[in-house]
Amino acid sequence: MAKFKKKTKTNQDIPTSALPDIIFMLLFFFMVTTVLRETTINVLQRIPKATELRKLQRKSLVSYLYMGKPRNTSMFGDEPKLQANDVFIEVNDVIMWVEKEKAKLDEVERDQITIAFKVDEEVKMGLVSDVQMELRKANARKLMYSTPQRMEE
């Protein structure tokens, strides 16, 4: 058997010089696919799930409105509130808020603004429909109830 024994001089180390490149690739993937959360959400968000979802085409046209009970109930009470960007707003401020959001967009795209609702499951439809009424008055008629995907049982 000794006959077949050959001295192997090949290097058995795996070259690790490409490792940083691989990690960088992963890093860039995550940097591109994720967005930093811009606002701190001060309302409870247990959003009901749905199955028939559609994807938004243009993220830049979307403005978010949050509704739910305030997280800090000792300071803001436990009635459901409306949050836009970082602050609580009242229902009659919605028109003004929409105008501000529209002003951020290009002039040609202003009519295509989409309002995405992120609403807690316990919020009553009274508040939701009041806001919808204001949106109709503000001529921001594209609406989306933002919900996570429900898996079919």
Binding site: I23, L26, L27, F30, M31, T33, T34, V35, L36, R37, A50, E52, L53, R54, K55, L56, K59, V62, A116, F117, Q132, M133, L135, R136, K137, N139, R141, K142, L143, M144, Y145, S146, T147, P148, Q149
Partner: peptide, 26 residues
Amino acid sequence: LLIFFLVTTTIANDKGLTLQLPPNPE
């Protein structure tokens, strides 16, 4: 860096049920 981004970011959820509101009642 990778771990920093993993922790600080949330994958944007831009899916939902769409609706076209009717025009201003006035």
